[in-house]
Amino acid sequence: MVAGMVAGAVAAAVLAAGGGVPDGADGGTDGELSSSVAVAAVADQYWMRAEARFAPPTAFIPSPAVTYEQGLVPAASWISVEQRVDERGTTVTARVRGMTPGHAYGVHVHQNPCGASPEAAGGHYQHVQDPVQPSKDPAYANPDNEVWLDFTAGADGSGSASAHHLWGFRPGGAGSVVLHREPGGAGDRVACFTVPFGSPPGESVEAGETVEQPAV
């Protein structure tokens, strides 16, 4: 699928920071991978994959993946986030390695990029935005109106989750994936990964566009 998108793509780029990215590497090895981003977009399709190793906010070499609690998200643990947009909607998939075995994490797409403070990521991305912020109304704060990627780490510390929606992100409206201490709609933020979410070149969603209220 990716090859078909890149052929004749409007934009395609691969960026790496830190070490190189070995052929076929997915962050599960002991290589020098720090972070990488790959993007492909053509007509009505968009594909993005970003991966990185977590580092504390005070790390000498900064990372787009920041851990605020190394007891649950150790430094050098790994995360990847993939976004696929086509005529069937938007699918976001998160994969991790090196987490605390058996721990259940809450994971959501948030509005802003990560920062030194957990609060820098802002609130959850919402397809229909709650006029009252921070949003606590279950009519808005739910997995149908937001992107929830909760998972429980396996015995080896790995985990994954996917979410599919018929809607796409507003341009510039989604900026990160945040890991929370527990699954559900809220909880302490233990880590954050800045992600370049996007949309197909021909797709534009106006901030003031009227959309159907999600079912409660």
Rank of each mutant, 00 (worst) to 15 (best):
M1S: 14
V2C: 06
A3Y: 12
G4D: 14
A7P: 02
G8W: 10
A9E: 05
A13P: 03
V14I: 14
L15A: 12
D26S: 08
G27L: 00
G28K: 04
T29F: 06
A40Q: 01
A41T: 03
D44H: 11
W47A: 06
M48D: 02
A55M: 09
I61F: 12
P62C: 09
P64H: 04
P64W: 00
A65L: 08
V66H: 01
A75N: 11
S77R: 00
W78F: 15
I79E: 03
S80W: 00
Q83N: 09
R88Y: 03
R88Q: 09
T91P: 01
V92L: 09
T93H: 07
A94D: 03
M99P: 01
P101G: 13
G102Q: 09
Y105R: 01
G106R: 00
V107E: 02
H110T: 05
Q111R: 14
Q111K: 13
N112R: 11
N112L: 13
G115T: 07
G115R: 01
G115H: 08
G115A: 11
S117Q: 15
G123N: 08
H124F: 06
Y125P: 02
Y125D: 05
H127Y: 13
Q129F: 05
K136S: 12
D137N: 15
D137Y: 04
P138T: 07
A141G: 03
N142G: 09
D144G: 11
N145D: 13
E146M: 14
D150S: 12
F151T: 03
G154T: 11
A155Y: 11
G157K: 02
S158G: 13
A161K: 02
H164T: 12
H165V: 06
P171H: 10
A174K: 03
V177C: 07
V178D: 02
H180E: 04
P183S: 12
G185V: 03
A186Q: 04
G187P: 03
G187K: 01
G187R: 03
F193G: 00
G198E: 02
S199K: 00
E206P: 03
E206A: 14
E206Y: 10
E209I: 10
A215L: 11
